[in-house]
Write a protein that binds this DNA or RNA. Sequence first.
DNA 1: ACTGAAAGACACAGACT
DNA 2: AGTCTGTGTCTTTCAGT
Lengths: 162, 162
Amino acid sequence: MKKEQLPTTSLILDSKDISILRILQQNAKATVKEISQKIHLSTTPVHERIKRMEEHGVIKQYATLVDYAKIKKGLMVICYVSLKQHNKNAGAKFIKSVQEMNEIIECYNISGEFDFMLKVVIENMDAYYDFHVNKLSQSENIGHVQSVFVMGIIKQTHVLIN
Amino acid sequence: MKKEQLPTTSLILDSKDISILRILQQNAKATVKEISQKIHLSTTPVHERIKRMEEHGVIKQYATLVDYAKIKKGLMVICYVSLKQHNKNAGAKFIKSVQEMNEIIECYNISGEFDFMLKVVIENMDAYYDFHVNKLSQSENIGHVQSVFVMGIIKQTHVLIN
DNA sequence: ACTGAAAGACACAGACT
DNA sequence: AGTCTGTGTCTTTCAGT
């Protein structure tokens, strides 16, 4: 995708933009023609609206979602981490190591007794044990780590506009 | 996207399939031509491989990812829920209500003291308070609810193949 | 399982209302 | 703001290796 500088003015989305997003969220390959028919417009304005939302960063990415289990990543673990020290430099080092670990697909700074919450997707329990002991805990400055295992996925979506 | 019955045989992915997935994960709009040049193949086999992975459910969805903050959903909350009763029927009712609440984008069955972990994305703290009191807690059979607020997003990706 | 070519559909730009 | 029309590029299929 083209990386362009984001316009400084924020984009106001009208109901037609929302309708377009509603369709695209579920199917990035929906054609402009298809969308234009659904929202009763011709292709040009639909095309322009999509381009505008891309440029303003409303549309972040066109992604292909892969079934984790089908690429042999059958285990999901929610992992809480507290740091020993909370100075800026120590935090930055931890963040850098998180970016480099591909098993970690999400990391949030959170309120409460822990500092970070991680979502880890990995092959199986053996691989997770190895990750925990030999990768995560090897990062400097790690205080406590607590793992919560995902036993079942009830709902998983990125769709916020329904 | 076409919904077809999944073939019963599981698909074995070779290194070329993985290369294709690596590209598509980051950009669903990558053209077959573009991919075929990168992996040194012509368009036909690339096209066939993609279709095969779609049919086998390895590729789950082509999604458009929207910047939550830019559609005024500025708050993310991790929410833990335990149920009062743990019989099958009570669980099913809770799961159904989760599916209906659009603010909840993820829900997992977890190990530990709580039964479920939810990820909620919502406008602001006022809206979250309203959601908590008037929607989530109104579901029958809710025992305890604990909210952890996301203060910063360090990493957020769906990409597992690097 | 791949290459190369060829048909139809699409994205995107332009002229116009 | 939007519609319509055209051009180049893409997806998709098919004969051939």
